[in-house]
Structures are given as C-alpha cells and as structure tokens.
Design a protein around this nucleic acid. Structure first.
Lengths: 200, 200, 200, 200
DNA sequence: AATGAATGAGGGTTCATTCAT
DNA sequence: AATGAATGAACCCTCATTCAT
C-alpha cells in the first residue's frame, strides 16, 4: 500500500498543522496526527525525525521569510510614521500598500509560531515581537511628553496588536479576507491609540 | 513535620493557581503543583478531592459573583449606551463608576475561567462572553446602517475586548493598577471602534 | 527483541486469564499481568485498549455463545423435566445428551463471567442465573404442595447448583473431565433435591 | 466529642465486619470503615494496630472455639457415621443434636475466615477444612469399593459441602434459621452423596 | 515505504499507615 | 480519646520515541 512519497508527507503535514493549531505543540498527539493522515506511527518517523521536526517543517519557511522581511523592509518601523499622519483616509492608502508586502509573510506558519509553539524553540517569538512593538509605542509616548498613560500600558497595547493579528489569521484563511480584516484592525487600533495619547 | 492546616492548603492553592495559569488546566501537573507547594502527592488528596476540585476552589467564588453581577447589574448592557455619548471625557466619569462595580469581580479567578479552563466545566466561558459582546457590536453596526465594516469583523473586535481585559488581569495583580489600565483599555477600545464605524 | 504478534498477545491473554481468576477483575494488576507475560505496561496498550478490553476478549465469545445457547435450546428449562423422571439411570442418558450441547459453552470464559467479573459490565450474571434456577425450584416446591422446605431454602439450593458447576470448571480444564464431573454433579444434585422434597 | 471507649470500638468492629463481608479483606477500605463508624482514620489506630488487627479481633474468638470444637468433639468425624445409617428420619434426630453443638461455633466470624480472609493469615482455612472433608469422603468411596465415581470428584463434593454452609451463614443471621437451613442442607447433601455412591 | 511491537517516563488517583497535635 | 496532615507505593493509563521486520 505504498503511496507517492510526497502525498504521504503532505498528508502528515496537513494533519499536523490542524492538530498543532487545535491543541498547541505540547498537547498535540502524534498518534492522532498519523491516524488522521491515514498512516502509522512508525511511518511518521520515516518522514520526520521527531515531533519538533514536523513542527519545524510547518513553520520554518515562513519564519525565515518573516525575519528577512523585518530586516530588509524594516516593516515594524514603518507603521510608526503612520502616527505622524493625522488622516485616516490617507492611512488606508499607505496600509493597503503595506499589506501587499506583509500578507504573504503572515500565514498559518506564523500563527503556529506565535500561538502554538510552547515547548519548541520558537517559544517566545510572540513576546519578542510584542517587545518590539512596545518599544516603539513607548518612544512615541515619550516624544509626546505624555503624562496620562502609564508606560506599563504600552505593553498591554502592544500585546493587543499582536493578538488581534493572530486572531484574524486564525479565523480566516482567505488572503483577501485577511488583508481586509487586518486593514480594518490596524485602523481600529491606530484610532484607539492616537485617541488615547491625544494625537487625534 | 506538620504545618498548620491553612498554610499547606494555601500553599497548594497558590502553587496550583500559578501552574494553571502557566500551563492551562489539562497540562498542569499535580506532581509539580505539590512539589512547588512543598508537599507530596498523597497529601494533596487530603486537601482536595481531585484536580478539578482544586481548580474549582480557585475559581468558584469569583465565578458566582461574576454571574450575579451580570444578572443584577446588567453590566454587559451598560457599556452600550456609552456609544451614544460622543464625549471621551464623560466616558471616563461613567467608566470610573462602572469600574467600582466591576473590579472586585474580575480577578485571577476570572482569568483562570476565561483563559485556563479547557478540560473543566468552565470551558467555553470566554466564547460565551465574546458572543454577547459580538451581538451588541453587530446591533450597533446595523443601527448605524454600516456598509464598510463586514459583520465578521465584529467577532474580531469582540475577541479583542475580551482578550484585552484578560491580558490586563494576567499581568497586573494590584486592583488599582487593574482599574486604571482597564479604564485606559476601554477608552482605547471605544475610540477605535467608534472611529471605525464612523461614530466619531 | 520483537516477538511474533500473536505470541505476545496470547501470552498476555493467558497471563490475564490467570490473574483474573486468582484475584478477580478489580484486584487484578496489569503490572503483574504484563510482568508474567514478559512484557511492559506500555506494550500492553498496544494490544488492548484497557483492562476491561482484555477481560472482554477473554470472555466475549463464550458469553455470546452461551446467550444464544439459552435462547435457542431453551436449556435452562430442560433440566426441569428431569424431575418428572424418577429413574436415575434414565437421567444419565438424557444428561449425557444435554452435556454434548452444554460443554462447549461452559469454559473458562464463563467462569470469569460468573466468578471474577465484579467491576465489569458482566457483574451480576451469576445472580441472574441463580435467580432463574431458584424460580424453577420454587415452582416445583409449590407444585408438590411442599410444607417442610421453606421457600428461602430454594435460593440456597440454586446457589449451590451454580457454584458447583463453577467449581468444576475452575478445577478442571479437560472437556472430558468437565463433562463427566458435571454429569456426576447434576446427578448428585438431583438426588439431593428430590430426596429433600420427597420426590424420591 | 469523646465517646465511651467501648462504644467507639464496637462501632468500628461492626462497620469493619460489614465492609469485610462485602468486599473481602483486601478490597476493604479503612477509610470507609471509619467513616461508616463515625470516626477518623487516626482514631482507628488508637483502637487497632492495623487493618489485620481489626480482622483478627473479629475472627479470633470464633476461630479458637472452632478449633477446640474440632479437637475436643471430633466434630468433623461424626458426620461420617451418619453415612452408615440408611434412615433419613433418623439422620434428622442425630443432626439436630449435632446442630446444638455446632451452631454456636459457626457464626459471622467463621464466614469471615472462610470467605473473606484472602490476604490475612487465615487465608487457606477453607481449603484445609475442605481437605479434611475430602479425605473422609475418599475413605468412604474406597470402603465401598466404588468404581464409578472418580476420586477427583470427592474434592468437588467436599467443596460443595463447605460452600453450602458458608452460603447459609452469609445469608441468614438468625441462629434458628441457620440451624434449620443447615439441617436441610446436610440432608440434601447426604441424600445426594449416598445416592451417588450407591448407598441408597 | 511501511508496520506496529517495545520501552520507560509521566499523567491522575487510592491506599494503609505514621505521628504531631 | 481524637484529629487529620504527611508519606510513599501502587493503581490504570497515555505518550513520544526506537527499531526489528
């Protein structure tokens, strides 16, 4: 009952993705992954060295694309300068362009990294990204000589940005919907933050 | 080597709370909880009937307070009418008052219920609350004859409200800080949503 | 160090049968069963879903054969009419024929069901059979207008019939010996009861 | 909340007797015994050194009475000579007298010893008694130059005598009922055996 | 390429027993 | 006399992983 090599491997990858998303890395059961993929435990280890290797393969490509995206396009910086533009309509134009760059790098792989990676070497990725967002936000607060918003709240806001994006990616597969909802979300988010720190 | 009864029980409760928050109900290990509490597995079962009973004790009181709070104070409704008031300064006054009622009912117990209860009878509480928020939000969208924001986005927004509150409760223990941050967060949240749906 | 699949499974079945017979279902220890079978706990669960599944496999076949035997051959009724035949020698002929039908359905599986099944879904089977025997016996007592033997004693007698059969099945594996002993036992039993109620 | 010493001890004895009869020595739970007796685990060990000591106390007296009864009255021998008397009516007279001696020595304590003692030092008592009965029975078979009944069947018969008595003692508490039923049972039993070996 | 037998650590839980109070 | 906190071994069961076939 042999099957073309790639078919089996893809079946396992797909089944693994589903299981990791549902249960998280640690609670995911290899027994269930292989059953769902229509093969056996033993055969799993012909394709993947171990549980983490499966996760790795699901995540690796998007992770490196994401890293190089940050490094080359300086992505996480750019949203900053949106804050200097007081015109939500203009935001949309700029955001739309930004989305074209971002969307391909934010897929299910990133959801796994950010939301299901506890127990793997990717554990903590979300926190690192949140840290970056938080630092930018604090810079702004200081630039604006803010006194009302405590610095600790910057972290709350940063977490919400990250979580909001993850929420959208988890709930919607279609890149178009993702794109639309992320744009709405960033708009919502910037209106909130700018209103809060008095920029609007 | 016996210790005053309450000391041990509190040590287990505290250790359990930590473990449940970190790992969630299912992955939490009784062996680790008791080690951290400085006792043995056998002794755990002198204090609690089983794993779920420990969770229950950490959660029960706040849960019932929360339920009766919803039923008697009609809490979840009230934020709604904030949306009819276009004055962020006025919001603060109303919110401040609301906080006095809410804060005592939103503690670590609620975080456990909302964020760590998979595998217990409280599983799904967060989803129920999100559903309620979502429905209110959709009502508003319809009242405003909105065309730009897709209804599916209401769920994203509702999730963010719930997650934001959980984030704050998880990161801060001090009721004063919680109060302040939740007020900031709701303000942020309302500015964002009202800006988005054109109410501002 | 792998062994042909069936060998291991049979080793576990055999070891399990022994343990269940000795200790009863509930006190039987899987650790001891697997040690006796020369394997490990983990491996046990490659062969059986759980403790009850092992018991089930030891018992299932004979149980269903027994049930259909009762339903089709009306077995439990037939011994009755023996009581109308006052000739022990004739009994032997009839009994001999009856044995040919019965013996294949009364093996170690039935002993497990009747004598070691507390804690399984077969719990109570012995009591049901005893009840049936008792009712037949009471019928006879009433038919004979008996006054000396209290009705409560019918249950004692019924229990003894069941226990006697179990005793023989437990002590002897060889179907021929079982057949011979059961015939002796039923003869002994009928002589006793008929003498007691005055039929002889 | 102290109670007269004997009351507590008796409560534990009574509760223990019940539990041992229901579950057997090994499955009996001290936690349940003390709960039923209305006291605590700790207090149990003020009255009894351990689980076995409780069993011992429930059983000890009757056991020694029974032993000395056997030794002095040569009880187990006597039923033998009944077999030389071919008159069931006469049996009754003799049996009745025998009962007066026996009944006081066959109570719940003996049931515990014979039926619930696995795991204690009394384990095996039933088998010893059965052995004695069996030997007598074999003697008779040999004396009668029996050829039809296999010697192995003697053990089956011996077991049935013992089990029958235990059945009666377990089901009936009232000494009068016990007496009556045991007499019926021995009559039943002797009719059966004598018929079988051709003595009748 | 595929199977599943085998392992051992760890999961939650129950138990008899000890002993400080 | 009475309490119940503390212990540790044993219970059934699940898991990721290895490896002979």
């Amino acid at each position: 009952m042999q099957v073309k090599k790639d078919e089996m491997k893809n079946a396992i990858l797909k089944s693994g993705e589903k299981e990791f998303l549902e249960k998280g890395y640690e609670k995911a059961s290899i027994r269930k992954i292989v059953k769902q993929a229509g093969t056996t435990i033993g055969n799993f280890y012909n394709y993947f060295a171990n549980k983490e290797a499966l996760f790795e393969e699901l995540v690796n490509e998007e992770y490196h694309e994401f890293i190089s995206f940050i490094q080359h396009h300086n992505t996480v910086e750019r949203p900053d300068y949106l804050w200097d533009i007081p015109n939500p309509t203009l935001w949309r134009t700029i955001l739309s362009e930004l989305m074209d760059d971002m969307i391909p790098h934010f897929g299910t792989g990133m959801v796994l990294i950010l939301d299901s990676s506890k127990g793997t070497k990717y554990e903590g990725s979300k926190e690192k990204i949140i840290e970056i967002i938080k630092d930018h936000f604090i810079e702004h607060l200081e630039k604006l000589n803010n006194k009302d918003i405590p610095l600790g709240f910057a972290e709350v806001i940063a977490i919400q940005l990250a979580e909001g994006l993850i929420t959208i990616l988890k709930k919607y597969d279609d890149p178009k919907v993702r794109r639309e909802y992320i744009m709405h979300y960033i708009t919502f988010y910037m209106l909130g933050t700018m209103g809060l720190i008095g920029g609007l």
